[in-house]
Design a binder for these strands. Structure first.
Lengths: 252, 252
DNA sequence: ATAAACCTTTACGCAACGTAAAGGTCAAGA
DNA sequence: TCTTGACCTTTACGTTGCGTAAAGGTTTAT
């Protein structure tokens, strides 16, 4: 497939000017120039543009992108690692800023005065290491799950609303788990409600439902440490409780 | 408390030049100018700078920030609440990008080849449509699974070798599925071998194993369209066959 | 008294394009 | 066939949000 500037632009979401600029600085040259002087891009160029956009998303400068894509594989890996670290820092910084926002709100509402230098926590990029130590694993675990959720949602081509609804349901399951766990009884009304909500939540990604599959999933939660870690996050033994609640709900 | 340019700059993490620039464009004027022409900032200015930095963090242009904070009905507390939500969104986006970076790194290290277009799923919004036509659903599903695999590997702190081994096992399961399916009999020796290999593969991520959980997972494969699509990729009905083979292997 | 560390304004530079301006090309419809 | 409108080209200046001198005045600490 061959593309002119405008076609490639529309496909990739960048502007025609951008493509000409990339040509100009030597970042992405068209495959050839036709007899009228038009830029013609081919498959290879499409792929490379995708590469470029990928790095651009990571806030890599065009100059650096040029270096990266012109170098062999292991160099690229190093670059990626560097970017990953940068992203991590960025994330930690965001967390700090969010904390500052919360604190500022609290200070306004509570009438508690805030120290001036506190107001800028997070904008300065110093205390990142501390943050890592403080949140460390927790965030990573959550991060893993978020990733899975996001990819699943995308996978199924869910609309924004659907995804939001599903997420909300997921949170509700979690809340219910805490409440039901507090009763200590997997046959309690709360536990039953929990199992129901869990089924409801499941239906967002399942096309067919069977008691066996639901029960099996519950067993798997206990067996697979990843799921176990997730459901045990708030209350220890939460995973087993959830399984029991589900099995009970299903009459098994 | 009163601050000169440099003091405020150090406290807030921005540069002196930035403060002068903000004065120049009228975004943040000092409280007063002293007898030597120095800019002197007071309490009000400190708070306003904080506001400005919050907006800047959200990629709002300075011009827009000016409009926003000069609006008559501007309520600081409301604005702060809005900031918090937007920051959360930004963080979620960062998480997604980080996941892709990690996945890319994993693919380089694990020697698992990745399709270029796979690498960039999720980054572009528009290109997806076209890609869809080209490669259809298949890639999305694979991407989803890869993501899960990668994040799992990370989560469990797997070594590269282990991850590679697991990936290889996963492929073997797939090959066996094709071979066993060809026999048409879920009780055949090939089917039994398939179930065994599947269990072996599972053990990479399971800490405890039970027949019930294994059987449940098999049921889930059929119920969840994502898994179904994955195992049906090569042979239609492969998922059901796998389930039957497993159930048979487990004597259920 | 002198150096270090401030402060000032003016002014040019930068990345990654956006936005004309001035003109050539191409497919489709009257 | 001719015209229209959507393409394409190059050249070139504008934009944002500062960084970075340069050239000089002020304050503070020793």
């Amino acid at each position: 497939m061959e593309y002119t500037v405008q076609k490639l632009a529309r496909m990739s979401g960048v502007s025609g000017r951008t493509l000409r600029y990339y040509d100009q600085i030597g970042l992405l040259k068209p495959a050839r120039i036709n007899s009228s002087g038009y830029r013609i891009y081919g498959q290879k160029e499409v792929d490379q543009l995708q590469q470029i956009l990928f790095y651009r998303e990571l806030d890599v400068s065009l100059e650096d992108i040029m270096e990266i894509i012109n170098q062999p594989g292991f160099e690229r890996r190093e670059a990626l690692r560097g970017h990953f670290d940068k992203l991590k820092e960025k994330r930690a910084r965001l967390d700090k800023i969010m904390a500052t926002v919360e604190k500022t709100i609290a200070s306004i509402e509570g009438g508690v005065p805030m120290q001036d230098n506190e107001k800028f926590e997070g904008f300065k990029e110093k205390l990142i290491e501390d943050n890592e130590k403080q949140y460390g694993k927790e965030i990573r675990e959550k991060y893993g799950d978020d990733t899975v959720d996001a990819s699943n949602a995308k996978l199924r081509g869910m609309s924004q609303e659907e995804y939001a609804a599903m997420t909300k349901l997921g949170e509700e399951v979690f809340e219910l788990l805490e409440k039901a766990y507090a009763t200590g009884d997997p046959t309690s009304p709360e536990a039953k409600q929990l199992a129901e909500k869990h089924k409801e939540w499941l239906m967002y990604s399942w096309t067919s439902y069977s008691k066996e599959a639901h029960a099996g999933l519950a067993e798997m939660y206990v067996a697979d440490e990843r799921f176990k870690a997730y459901y045990d996050k708030e209350v220890d033994g939460g995973t087993e409780f959830l399984r029991d609640a589900i099995l009970n709900y299903l009459g098994m």
